[in-house]
């Protein structure tokens, strides 16, 4: 209806113009997604191309899987993966612990200093990654600890903990603190309340936050490159390799990474849909139960509670 108003006003636009204007958003979206995906697609194609150095998608001279074999034979690269995993696990533990403590404090402390606290704890997200790497390096170096896996783990956790904290805060804001009071009232200790009520409620967030923390850590370059000293991680090795002597092994690694990302995205979507479907079923059953309400047998009440 609104389009007709527009055409009436500008009645002289030729039909072809209308057709174009109507489809412009769609065309734009197609172009945008091509822009997002084509570079990745070309990068993946090059992983299967027999052409060696430098890797390229076209001309495609022949299909091969040899670059994947070369990748798994690349010992320094595999060692770097080991370092990445160690840092990643450290970051998961540290970021979840710190992020949760921050979230609990900010959602539950009733004090005026809360907003200042919040500002400082999210500030690492707005700080360039290299600054975090440098400040952590300088800090630990003055204590006699040079750059390495330990310093890199701490530097990464500084801002990854902020991500975790924001996720926990979002979850905790939907938390009915009455549940904790109910458990306490039924005789649970403070620790029991935390492990029986709060943690199960937070579990989905703990899992996603842990996953995101690991991914953030695994891919991090800007912070790590300063904090890592003479050690290396996969991402740093990859950058050095890609910059100096790119071989299709880099592309093979890219194929694996992207495939994993796609699989995880799909799993996430499947999980989201099945959760929504289950909730729907539950609500349906509750509605059904409403209709089938049975009266209480009061004598039975007496019998059971007297027992």
């Amino acid at each position: 209806m609104t389009d007709t108003t527009l055409t009436h006003r500008t009645g002289s636009i030729p039909a072809i113009g209308d057709w174009f204007m109507e489809r412009l958003p769609g065309i734009y979206m197609v172009l945008f997604f091509l822009y997002m995906f084509l570079p990745l697609v070309f990068m993946m194609i090059a992983a299967f191309n027999t052409t060696a150095v430098p890797p390229t998608a076209l001309p495609f001279e022949g299909f091969t899987l040899k670059w994947f074999g070369a990748l798994f034979a690349n010992a320094p690269l595999l060692a770097a993966i080991g370092n990445s995993l160690v840092i990643g696990l450290g970051v998961i533990v540290l970021s979840l612990t710190l992020g949760l403590s921050g979230a609990l404090l900010i959602t539950r402390l009733h004090a005026r200093s809360k907003s200042a606290l919040y500002a400082i704890l999210v500030s690492p997200l707005l700080t360039p990654g290299i600054i975090l790497g440098i400040s952590t390096l300088v800090f630990w170096n003055s204590a006699g600890i040079p750059g390495g896996l330990f310093v890199a783990t701490l530097a990464q956790s500084t801002f990854i903990a902020s991500y975790c904290m924001l996720m926990f805060i979002a979850r905790l804001q939907r938390f009915d603190s009455g549940l904790e009071e109910a458990a306490l009232d039924l005789g649970a200790s403070h620790q029991q309340v935390f492990w029986h009520v709060t943690v199960p409620f937070l579990k989905p967030t703990i899992i996603t936050a842990g996953l995101i923390a690991f991914l953030q850590s695994f891919e991090n370059f800007n912070t790590t490159v300063f904090a890592i000293g003479t050690e290396t991680t996969l991402t740093i090795k990859l950058a050095a390799l890609a910059r100096k002597t790119p071989t299709p092994e880099v592309n093979a690694l890219a194929v694996i990474f992207i495939a994993l990302t796609v699989v995880m995205a799909i799993l996430y979507e499947v999980k989201r849909r099945s959760d929504a479907a289950r909730e729907k079923v539950m609500a349906e059953r509750a509605k059904q139960a409403e209709k089938e309400m049975v009266s209480l047998d009061i004598d039975k009440v007496a019998a059971t509670t007297a027992a």
């Binding site: 009455g178 549940l179 009071e181 109910a182 458990a183 009232d185 029986h196 409620f201």
Partner: peptide, 13 residues
């Protein structure tokens, strides 16, 4: 004492 909350506070999980 045992308290019955206004929103019942049954443990959803």
């Amino acid at each position: 004492t045992a308290l019955i909350f206004q929103n019942l506070a049954l443990f959803p999980l």
